[in-house]
């Protein structure tokens, strides 16, 4: 935590037990890891251009998850709360529509169905260097990983 940050916004996404009234037993995420890592770096660069954030942490799970499991964590610190909220909100929205991630829901009886997505959005063509000094954690974490955090 930096001395010049006035707040941290933390978003933790969890697996819901229903979709459109249908009971969901679990979720499975598929990730194009190699591309997702580049997209994370691009997203971080874009956020830093738009808001004076201090540190950004983005973590997304991969593989099979149960209801109640954490699927995504976004944490942003900034000098003021408004900037932290805006940047965190932007990050989660972008991860929903412009990351090479797919999920399918598992229903009663073991039947799976892919969640309807949107065509992947291309926001930037430049590929920034991975790993800014203030980025704590980033990456895609597999189900079997005990810790949520990939160093």
């Amino acid at each position: 935590m930096e001395d010049d940050a006035g707040g941290i916004v933390l978003f933790v996404g969890t697996i819901r037990n229903q979709t459109d009234g249908r009971r969901v037993k679990g979720l499975e995420y598929q990730v194009y890891r190699r591309m997702a890592r580049r997209e994370i770096a691009k997203l971080e660069e874009e956020i830093r251009k738009r808001w004076p954030v201090k540190s950004i942490t983005l973590v997304h799970r991969e593989g099979k998850l149960k209801v109640g499991d954490v699927s995504i964590v976004v944490a942003v610190s900034a000098p003021h709360r408004g900037e932290a909220f805006d940047a965190a909100r932007y990050a989660i929205d972008r991860i929903k529509d412009s990351f090479p991630i797919w999920k399918r829901e598992k229903f009663k009886g073991g039947r799976y169905a892919w969640v309807k997505g949107t065509p992947i959005q291309s926001h930037s063509s430049s590929v920034p260097k991975v790993g800014g000094p203030e980025t704590r954690v980033r990456g895609i974490v597999r189900r079997r990983t005990r810790s949520l955090v990939e160093a």
Partner: peptide
């Protein structure tokens, strides 16, 4: 790579 419509989070 062939990428069907995506949805993360």
């Amino acid at each position: 790579a062939l990428l069907p419509p995506v949805v993360g989070g």
